[in-house]
Amino acid sequence: MMEFFNRLFPRNKSKNVAKERLKLVLMGDRGVSPEVLEKIKGEIIGVLSKYIEIEDNELDFKIANTENEDGTAIVPALVANIPIRRIKK
């Protein structure tokens, strides 16, 4: 019975959970460290600031687990929430 369920819901298999967790943790280990993330953030803000004014205090910038498009796997994604104060003319 468990086998049957596992086949229906392959994501529940513990090896897939292990794989996804490993991929995420290794990304942090390999260099998308808080410092690197801070650098990426700074550079992106730099580019955006040429065209829009940004609400600096409410910036949210992180790497998070997200479902991929067809919902079959959890993948790491760069999630940025950048509130706009106004568009520059």
């Binding site: 596992n6 298999k13 090896k15 897939n16 292990a18 794989k19």
Partner: peptide, 9 residues
């Protein structure tokens, strides 16, 4: 069984 990370992975 799907309870150990495989070689390819």
């Amino acid at each position: 069984r799907g309870d150990m990370i495989g070689l390819e992975d």
